[in-house]
Computed example of a mutant assay.
Amino acid sequence: MTQLDTLCLRVRDVAAQKQFYCDVLGMSDQGDGRIGYSAEETALQFIEADGPYTPQASDLYWKIAISVPNIELACAQLQARGIAVAGPQQFRDVGYLAKFTDPEGFTIELIDHWFAGDRPAQEFDKRLFGGGPHLSLVTLRTSDIAAIEPDLFDWGMTALCVQPVESFGFTLYFYAFTNERPPNPDLTAVENRTWTYQRTYSVLEIQHVDALEQETLPEAGAAGYGGLRLSAAPAPFRSERLLIATE
């Protein structure tokens, strides 16, 4: 099945980035210069850039999210290594979240598998980051979800969840290469949200920003988003707007 294979990010110090994601976040070598958690999930590939990364609110690329069975453990592990991360908070009916940045300034979101107070009693490995992490989301932005969604469906992606966050001026859309269907056919249903975060494969999240006139594409060679590669696709796919393509 087609999958979100590799997220490319341009950075100043490739070796330091790989060391951070492996030593601190528990990723490992996935071959071909890529690192990640497993072959089922999106791997990261860092490419040398000309200068520092300077994110802005209109950027096409926003973040990755790492889902964990115990977000308090993940935050404590980061804090023990001197990494600035606030304790997790329940953000509306979206998720039980925390955020921090990597050494180059890229945002990483932590998402618990459950909303605050809903986590069932369960066993997890305290030696692992957050008790057992997986790269659950790759998040891009758009000013026009209607312009890009047909391509995603043509590629064979399935819509898993829709999360309106009107007071913040955006709506979140979630898509994946999967035969699974969310528990509620109403994609806006709250029960679909933690279900999405618990998937073992990586999901494409699109933040549709109401007030955004046009998302900003990265300049050639500059630090930032370098594109998202698909693998095992039955036909060549390419989106110039999202910088997503088959290998």
Rank of each mutant, 00 (worst) to 15 (best):
Q3K: 15
Q3A: 03
C8S: 14
V11P: 06
R12E: 10
A15K: 14
A15D: 13
K18E: 15
Y21S: 03
D23C: 05
G31N: 03
G33W: 01
S38T: 14
Q45L: 02
F46I: 11
A49N: 10
G51N: 12
Y53D: 14
P55K: 08
Q56T: 15
Y61L: 05
V68K: 11
I71V: 13
C75W: 07
L78Y: 06
R81S: 02
G82P: 04
V85F: 02
Q89Y: 08
F91M: 14
F91L: 12
Y96H: 09
T101N: 13
T101H: 12
P103S: 06
G105R: 04
D112A: 05
G117Q: 08
R119F: 08
A121G: 05
K126V: 12
R127E: 10
F129C: 00
L135I: 02
V138K: 02
P150W: 09
F153G: 04
P164C: 01
E166G: 00
F170A: 03
T171K: 03
F174S: 08
F177S: 00
F177L: 01
T178H: 06
R181M: 10
P182D: 06
D186C: 03
L187A: 13
A189H: 14
Y197I: 05
Q198N: 04
Y201L: 01
E205K: 11
V209N: 13
E213W: 07
E215L: 02
L217I: 10
A222R: 12
G224F: 09
L230N: 11
A232P: 05
P234G: 07
P236M: 09
S239P: 01
L242D: 10
L242S: 02
T246E: 01
E247R: 09
